[in-house]
Design a protein around this nucleic acid. Structure first.
Length: 581
RNA sequence: GCUGAUGUGGCUUAGCAGGUAAAGCACCACCUUGGUAAGGUGGAGACCACGGGUUCGAGUCCCGUCAUCAGCUCCA
């Protein structure tokens, strides 16, 4: 794998050299390997487009055919600064290196050199078998900061050989067919309307139904696990968010209206926390009240920057299975464990258990703007959380600067068909907002203490989860989540009454069915049903007047005929139960 | 918010030297249909995202807005 990284990175230099040939004034910045190739960030006076790329790719091939040597040259910092004096990006990197450090520069062929740590292949001839191809050009901020200039990022696919490249491209093509944003619209799970606005999807009946199924599942499961249901307002005077700290740290993402100076301003809620805390605050609390597990199916509003909204994954209004667990310090570990267990159970039921990864999201102690609280408190809580995670034997990665403004998180991450990662479930420890709201419980020793609060979701945001379900199953959702489980079709209208009787049996057993008794050819009706990726079809005909025949079809058109209706119904109920473990 | 691309009937697309919209699927009607992934005929449906501008004339050129997509930044 390391070798592949070397190939990719070496190719980035080849690209840089090719760009330099056609665009002499191009400013090269960095060109690292990626999961499927490499990119190079460049600053160019003009816009590079995909039409410019064939000649660049041809030039890259030429450089490879020339078998040019990568030659490492070590220079002093002063010398390096001199060599790259015309490139502010390179000089910025160099000047940040410690004084006295040897700096490596790689020469490629006779007339091109680049600042780089390496390693590279010995010469470009080693790249002759590599399969690489231009992917796309996008914008990217210098050093990932929106305060900096936006550069052009040229992405390439790159693999050890051409067969692997072809295989990868095929996989990408396949993955794109599962894109929820396309499939979800085609299969009529949701749509959007220009004049309603960004990040505000219309859930069509199928999407609404699947979300209802998930929601009922979560609410029932939470009730079993000792959660208390709450229902709190979607809006509040801004006063509430002043206390919680949202106004200071989250204002840009909030919808606020009214005159804040005169105290008559209101805001749509971006989070449920400060509302749900009022349940705890309703009267004085004893340690005997804890843990207090509060849950709410909660609609939230966040004024996302316009470029952020995406399909059902990033919205301005969404609904999450939000919950807060108010605990004593001694209860923290057990309750955190319970939350992880619920999250894993939910994911397992949806079949997403193997598609997620865990991220321990910590604060960035250098970013005091973004976070509240002292370093001591953060260290203490983060150490505690790490201890719990280690104890749970969860394989997690640590990420700085990904925490909520009030505390660290365990984020359960999932990737979409483009390979982009997002959070599907989050479990957070809040050690600060409770204090701000003066939440206390009286402990056994008679002393008033601040509780810890765990913020958590059990399937996360329903819209987002639906998106991942559509992508995971290419629209053919597991039976228990399918908005329509069985469709009953008739060969002709004469079977209508009998077919309705069959349909009633499914309904009596709590199955979600639709019927299609229209006077259309059966081939037509089957085609329509199949294109909608329905789990099962039941086709009703008759041999003679009194001898009805029933043919059952599953996904992929396999024939399940021979089953009696009653047996089939039992089989479906079993399938639902099995998937939900 | 930033960079780039895109926006033609419900869907997929054609139309681009600027001369007032074309097709398939879907929809509706009629006919047909005793059988397992596209039966036939006919019909309706688009001020070409929206608003300005240039022009005798704009889907086609220019500007702005909105929306959609990819990426960056941000985030559930």
């Amino acid at each position: 794998m390391e070798e592949l990284q070397t190939i990719r990175h070496s190719l980035a230099h080849v690209l840089a050299k090719a760009l330099k040939k056609y665009y002499g004034d191009v400013l090269l910045t960095i060109g690292p390997a990626t999961a499927d190739g490499f990119y190079y960030d460049i600053d160019l006076g003009q816009n590079l487009t995909s039409e410019d790329m064939p000649k660049i790719e041809a030039e890259m091939k030429k450089i490879i055919n020339n078998n040019e040597k990568f030659e490492k040259i070590v220079v002093s910092k002063e010398k390096a600064l001199e060599l790259f004096k015309d490139n502010p990006y390179k000089t910025e990197i160099i000047s940040e290196l410690p004084d006295g450090e040897e700096i490596s520069i790689y020469k490629l062929g006779e007339d091109f050199f680049d600042l780089c740590r390496g390693p590279h292949v010995a010469s470009t001839g080693k790249l002759s078998n590599a399969g690489f191809e231009f992917k796309v050009i996008n914008g990217a901020y210098w050093r990932g900061s929106e305060k900096n200039k936006m550069l052009q990022r040229v992405y390439f696919y790159a693999f050890a050989n051409k067969a692997e490249l072809a295989e990868h491209k095929k996989q990408v093509q396949e993955a794109l067919k599962r894109d929820h944003n396309k499939l979800g619209r085609e299969l009529e799970y949701f749509t959007t309307v220009d004049y309603i606005g960004q990040g505000l999807p219309i859930m069509l009946p199928k999407g609404a139904k699947t979300i209802q199924i998930m929601q009922r599942f979560v609410e029932d499961e939470e009730a079993k696990r000792g959660y208390l249901l709450t229902k709190t307002p979607l809006i509040s005077k801004t006063e509430l968010f002043k206390i919680s700290g949202h106004l200071d740290h989250y204002r840009e993402s909030m919808f606020i209206w009214g005159d804040e100076e005169k105290g008559e301003a209101f805001a749509l809620r971006p989070m449920t926390c400060p509302f749900q805390y009022q349940v705890f605050l309703n009267r004085t609390r004893s340690y005997k009240d804890l843990p207090m597990r509060l849950a709410e199916t909660s609609t939230l509003f966040r004024n996302e920057a316009s470029g952020e909204c995406h399909g059902l994954i990033r919205l301005r209004q969404f609904t999450i299975s939000e919950g807060h667990i108010i605990v004593t310090p001694e209860q923290l570990e057990d309750e955190f464990r319970n939350c992880v267990d619920l999250a894993k159970y939910s994911l397992g039921c949806m079949g997403l258990g193997d598609d997620v990864s865990f991220r321990f999201s910590k604060w960035d102690e250098n970013n005091k703007e973004k976070y509240i609280g002292s370093k001591e408190e953060w260290d203490r809580v983060q150490d505690k959380m790490r201890e719990i995670l280690n104890d749970l034997k969860i394989p997690f990665v640590e990420a700085d600067g990904e925490a909520a403004f009030y505390g660290p998180k365990l984020d359960i991450q999932i990737k979409n068909v483009f390979g982009k990662e997002d959070t599907i479930i989050t479990i957070q420890i809040d050690f600060q907002i409770a204090e701000r709201f003066q939440m206390f419980y009286t402990d056994a020793d008679g002393v008033k203490k601040n509780p810890y609060i765990i913020h958590r979701t059990s399937v996360g945001c329903y819209e987002r989860t639906l998106a991942y379900l559509i992508e995971k199953y290419a629209g053919a959702l597991p039976l228990w989540l399918a908005p329509e489980q069985v469709r009953i079709l008739t060969i002709n209208e004469r079977n209508k009454d009998y077919a309705q009787g069959v349909a009633d049996k499914f309904i009596e057993n709590g199955l979600r069915i639709t019927t299609d008794f229209r006077n259309e050819t059966i081939g037509y009706k089957i085609r329509e049903a199949m294109s909608q990726k329905l789990p099962y079809l039941v086709i009703i005909g008759e041999e003679e007047e009194s001898n009805k025949t029933i043919s059952i079809r599953g996904r992929g058109f396999e024939n399940l005929s021979g089953l009696k209706v009653e047996d089939f119904i039992n089989r479906l109920k079993e399938e639902v139960k099995t998937f939900k473990k």
